[in-house]
């Protein structure tokens, strides 16, 4: 059985994210880190692999060449190999172009199960898994908080606006997991050393069926209505509680 996990490397939030005024795109230079939400999908794949014989876990991603470093973390966690679709032609890709690129990479892999995390922290959209499922014409279960392999299929429990649902689907299927599903592991030292020898493939646009044209455009950027100053304090010397109390007094909340 093969499980593919779709992940995204995104600009590190510590450095602060910005949109380039000239290209009107997210500035993706600098350090990239794996989306924390995607780690839950990676963890779930590893849990499935541990519970069943002969499960291969392949990480699939679309991003700049530097994303390969971020993908290595998933290999250190225990994934078997990674496939990065990376091509200048994907810069500024919208949902349709991104979904087609990932679907192209997944067609080459023919996985039994495709996992996604619950959102991407930069695009903030929770649209990609449904678009990929449609492109591959595979059944979809999203927002899954508990997942089991059941005979020839998969069954997921999820929460919607109206309560809980149990949804099943035959394999191959696409499943998007929520952050409630597990606690992602930290890579062990052995895992980190071992990751260096695991295969990391890079695919071009041509390898995944070409790069389409975005169907959405960014027309203009504007500053948002001010929310006021944001402050960050570190509780280095145990003074944070007092800092919060002072802040509440200042805002007349205490």
């Amino acid at each position: 059985m093969k499980v593919a996990v779709c992940v995204k490397a995104v600009p590190d939030t510590v450095a602060g994210r910005r949109i380039d005024a000239a290209t009107r795109r997210l500035d993706r230079r600098g350090e990239l880190a794996l989306s924390a939400f995607d780690l839950h999908a990676v963890e779930e794949a590893l849990v499935l692999a541990e519970g069943h014989d002969e499960v291969e876990v392949v990480i699939v991603s679309l991003g700049p060449p530097a994303a390969a470093d971020a993908l290595r973390k998933t290999l250190a966690m225990g994934a078997d190999r990674s496939v990065l679709v990376s091509d200048e032609r994907f810069e500024g890709a919208d949902l349709l172009v991104s979904a087609a690129a990932l679907a192209g990479a997944l067609r080459r892999e023919q996985p039994d199960l495709v996992l996604f995390g619950q959102q991407s922290p930069d695009g903030e959209g929770a649209c990609l898994w449904a678009a990929v499922a449609e492109a591959l014409r595979l059944p979809l279960i999203s927002q899954v908080a508990a997942l089991v392999l059941e005979g020839p299929g998969v069954s997921g429990r999820r929460q919607t606006e109206f309560g809980y649902e149990q949804i099943s689907a035959p394999l191959p299927a696409v499943v998007a997991v929520s952050d409630a599903i597990n606690q992602p592991r930290y890579p062990s030292l052995k895992g980190i050393m071992g990751a260096k020898n695991k295969p990391q493939a890079v695919l071009s646009a041509a390898d995944v069926g070409g790069a389409g044209t975005s169907r959405t455009t960014v027309l203009a950027l504007a500053a948002p209505p001010a929310r006021g100053e944001r402050r960050i304090v570190r509780d280095d010397e145990g003074t944070a509680a007092a800092a919060i109390a002072a802040f509440l007094v200042e805002r007349r909340l205490l």
């Binding site: 960014v218 027309l219 203009a220 950027l221």
Partner: peptide
């Protein structure tokens, strides 16, 4: 919400 974007369709 740190920036506001006007978006369109092609």
């Amino acid at each position: 919400d740190s920036v506001r974007i006007d978006v369109g369709w092609s």
